[in-house]
């Protein structure tokens, strides 16, 4: 029997790493591979969820409904899931997803703002979808405060509430404390979504399992926002070696990683300084590529942008603040330069 249920988010969180340029053929190939390997849930959406295609987050190359239809067609056993952030997507997007055949709706809010989600969770339930409450940037608040928000998600009807380490900022103790607090307080299922900025995504997932977590997220090859996600094939291999059955064929998922996803992965899973800084400073992982681009555009350092975003306590969705910070850093640098010239 499977110890927990795995959701692979390569085709949603991985969309960030590809600047939302997935093609229909790529989606079909990944879904086919993961489905045959036994992955039970596969998430497909713009990286910022349904309706995320925008100036602020990047336009999708292919309409996500086309991608969802393709995914639903390819999946023989796996359920297809979507992510949706109230404020970015709207209820109509959930209706469309349900019509296409999506079976799991994951409704995401910042970890302190669960109360913007009740209508969306209720609608997803009404549409017959399994529903997840997805509390992003969970490292920013204490386990006790997180429990309060998780209880709200449960009260709206969520079948599972996720502790989401969007910044890859959690140590093993951080992840353990949050999962165990939420698990003890809720009767519904609890999940963990980990990022790999501190190289702890697999370790945190295994610690969460020890605390009784019911669902765990991975991305094949770790393809995902920031420094990448918990790599699905490594997660599966590590659990199998520990005697925990995942229901997924370790060799088959390794093949998908190597042969299907690695060829389309732009950065070969390297946690560079910027990726590490996100986790160290606790900054939303999806900001990484936008920050790199803004750094180049305005002639400033990515590192300085990320640190300033951390200082401002910016939350997921505020990609526009990257431009704001870059413009400000450019102006400060110009002022400092002018001062220097004056001093000489």
């Amino acid at each position: 029997m499977s110890g927990f249920r795995l959701t692979d988010s390569t085709l949603r969180d991985g969309s960030h790493a590809l600047a939302h340029q997935f093609t229909e053929a790529q989606v079909r190939a990944v879904v086919r591979g993961l489905d045959r390997a036994g992955v039970p849930v596969i998430e497909v959406s713009h990286g910022d969820g349904l309706g995320g295609s925008s100036f602020n987050y990047g336009f999708s190359r292919t309409n996500e409904k086309v991608l969802l239809r393709a995914a639903v067609e390819e999946a023989e056993h796996a359920k297809i899931a979507v992510l949706m952030l109230p404020g970015i997507g709207v209820k109509d997007d959930l209706v469309d997803a349900a019509e296409i055949g999506v079976e799991v709706a994951r409704i995401a809010t910042h970890c302190t703002e669960a109360d913007i989600a009740p209508q969306h969770i209720a609608l997803a339930k009404e549409l017959g979808m399994e529903t997840v409450g997805f509390l992003m940037m969970s490292h920013m608040i204490s386990p006790e405060d997180l429990v309060e928000q998780a209880k709200l998600m449960e009260s709206y009807g969520a079948d599972c509430v996720y502790v989401v380490d969007s910044a890859g900022a959690m140590t093993i103790d951080d992840a353990r404390a949050r999962v165990s607090a939420v698990k003890n307080a809720l009767t519904c299922q609890v999940g963990l979504h980990a990022h790999n900025n501190l190289s702890l995504a697999v370790a945190n997932s295994m610690a969460a399992y020890e605390e009784g977590v019911d669902q765990i997220d991975g991305c094949t090859t770790g393809l995902g926002a920031g420094a990448g996600n918990c790599p699905t094939e490594i997660l599966v291999a590590a659990f199998e070696k520990s005697g925990v059955h995942t229901g997924v064929d370790p060799l088959a998922v390794m093949d998908v990683a190597q042969d299907v996803v690695r060829p389309i992965q732009p950065l070969q899973g390297v946690i560079d300084r910027d990726g590490l800084l996100l986790g160290y400073a606790g900054v939303y992982g999806s900001f990484l590529l936008h920050a790199k681009r803004a750094a180049e555009r305005f002639g400033v350092d990515t590192k300085d942008i990320l640190l300033e975003l951390g200082r401002r306590q910016v939350v997921g969705g505020q990609e526009d603040m990257i431009i704001d910070v870059a413009v400000e850093l450019e102006r400060e640098a110009a002022a400092a330069m002018a001062q220097q010239i004056q001093d000489h």
Binding site: N56, G87, E113, R312, Q313
Partner: peptide
């Protein structure tokens, strides 16, 4: 297209709007 974000930072942030 309009996007809305709530930010819980303390002290509270001043309202921000970005127009593209």
């Amino acid at each position: 297209k309009a996007i809305m974000v709530l930010n819980p930072a303390e002290p509270p942030i001043i309202m921000r709007n970005t127009v593209f």
